[in-house]
Design a protein around this nucleic acid. Structure first.
Lengths: 345, 345
DNA sequence: TTGAAAGCGATACCAT
DNA sequence: ATGGTATCGCTTTCAA
């Protein structure tokens, strides 16, 4: 048994109209401001609304108007536990705030990023009269043609490179990698290695190469790693092993492609007694809170998640939607892992 | 400009009916199994659905049936960034899977836990024909009477103690604290201190006291700390300061009430050169992935989030809802921070 | 400024 | 087994 008080039937617009002595339409006008209403009439309506505790039925509204006043936020439920993604949290809060500011609710859902499933989710959203979809892109490419066919506006977040016909945005990873690598080089570490995905077209990889070239030093070793903590730990172990095998040319610094990965690398170094930054310096990418509380604190290139999230909502809701790829600058946050003195935290 | 192909008007139930040469009702019967339909007719209907790419309009369905086939998951957006809560992620994935298994979508939203706002969100959910609410309780108590009045079934997750009239569940914190503290004592640390909220009625606090009493040792010092990383760091600094002031009776071990807090404590210890577990041993609570990748790995009492999430959905959707408080056992995960040898990870 | 009434798309009751 | 049709609660012409 529910055990609660027997809920009185919910008040509808009609009840309000009757109590206020006006027609259904006027209630609607008053509440939505869709037509001018005499001040005294409005007052009576509002009083009736208050007295009855009336709340418009959103399903009816959605049916009639074709909009549920809701945005969906689709996040990947990949190998590393979904929502555990450090970014996800920041994105979600800001998106939710931004959406709310504009009168929309935000519907956050996880999905595997198999193209079929993404498409299925889009269809489901359409059926629910969702107004737009924010997609936190994983590495999986999206079938934009199929998604567009669903007829829902959507925008991809956290995207590295422009893709034809897709509205997207993301941090300028290449520029960030250049800044971070350059900083590492300025510490005089001689050469800087790279830990990250094995993908020559990846902007962070490219930026790393560019920074090394610009400094006139040979690029340090490339160490392939999955962008997860276990992946980083693994890579860390390999780095330590290589170092043991050939101490002479062992690199003194690494640019690690993500905070998550760096946490794993750090872990591996601790396990093997490698001191950071004394033996090997590290700088990573993302600027999540993991970087702050790692030991030592991780120097990291912060992605401007807040701004990106706000822009995403704005663009998604814009009437003149574009298919541009918007690139955001980030900023380097200095901590001890790169060799900088630890400034407080 | 959206630039896409002009979307053809969405097919409705009526289009399907016409194409299949049946009435609207039969389409409904076929799709929902609400009435017997001849096999050949069903086939024609299904074919029409397929051909038209028909998807029932959920808003209409919700309006008519009073159910949106959707559950809401309300998480606190407190000081520590919302979704960053280590538990949130695990809960969200499992809840979503469990809901989906039963044909419901899950709507995840953050809110401050000011009673007024929670109530407002409940009302909003009701207006959207949401079928039930899963509340990830923060420390804030909920006004169950007010919430019940909204008429939505709901259940509180992550709850420590039974409260009259509230359906809830949570880990047996007290038992976990006993197990964890006892383990610490078995390492022969002499006495064990406690780092956590300043609340004598808190089950982890009580469990800590009980374990000390049972072992016949005086309870070590109590160090108040907010349940956040900064809070833990703060507490850690105080511990180190006290230790410096009176090295003689400095405690050798601490039970820390959450992984988050412990990460902060660890950070403080690192900053001050205190070795864990050699100088001070630590064990914490939650069993999140932060504990695994901390250095040293944190011994922690794992909460069975998955089971709790599944049970929550089951109970929320049960026809005979109860107001019980369901307590789940957890398990101690041993790592190096307590003094155990590090077993692999 | 206000009211009457026509739908939005689906469900389910009542006939047949 | 199948078909008409009232109805869910709201928005929005169109007239008054």
């Amino acid at each position: 048994m529910t055990g609660g008080t027997p809920t009185p039937r919910k008040a509808t617009r009609r009840d309000v109209a009757r109590l206020a002595g006006v027609s259904d339409a006027v209630v609607s006008y008053t509440l939505n401001g869709t037509a001018p209403v005499a001040a005294t009439t409005a007052e009576r309506v509002l009083a009736a609304v208050e007295q009855l505790g009336y709340r418009p039925n959103q399903a009816a509204r959605a049916l009639r108007s074709g909009s549920a006043d809701t945005l969906a936020f689709l996040v990947p439920s990949s190998s590393d536990p979904v929502f555990t993604n450090p970014f996800f949290g920041e994105y979600a809060s800001t998106l939710e705030a931004a959406a709310r500011d504009r009168g929309y609710a935000l519907y956050t859902t996880a999905t595997s990023f198999h193209p079929d499933e993404v498409l299925a989710r889009f269809r489901e959203f359409a059926a629910r009269q969702i107004d737009g979809v924010l997609v936190l892109a994983g590495d999986t490419p999206l079938d934009s043609t199929a998604l567009d066919r669903v007829g829902l506006p959507w925008i991809a977040l956290n995207v590295a490179t422009r893709e034809r016909g897709v509205a997207s945005l993301g941090t300028d990873l290449r520029a960030g990698a250049v800044a971070t690598t350059t900083h590492l080089l300025e510490h005089g570490h001689g050469s800087v290695g790279f830990v990250g995905q094995d993908d020559p077209s990846e902007p962070r990889y490219i930026g790393w190469l560019q920074a090394c070239a610009a400094a006139g030093v040979p690029a340090g070793p490339f160490v392939a790693a999955e962008v997860t903590r276990p992946g980083g730990r693994d890579a860390g172990h390999r780095i330590v092993d290589d170092r043991a095998a050939d101490p002479g040319r062992a690199p003194r610094a690494f640019f690690v492609a993500s905070d998550r990965t760096a946490v794993g690398v750090l872990r591996a170094f601790h396990e093997r007694g490698i001191r950071v930054p004394e033996d090997i310096a590290i700088a990573s990418f993302d600027g999540s809170s993991e970087a702050e509380y790692a030991w030592p604190g991780l120097t990291t290139f912060r992605q401007p998640v807040d701004e990106m999230a706000r822009s995403a909502v704005t663009r998604l809701l814009a009437t003149d939607r574009d298919h541009a790829h918007e690139l955001f600058p980030g900023e380097l946050v200095l901590r001890r892992s790169c060799g900088c003195p630890d400034a407080g935290r």
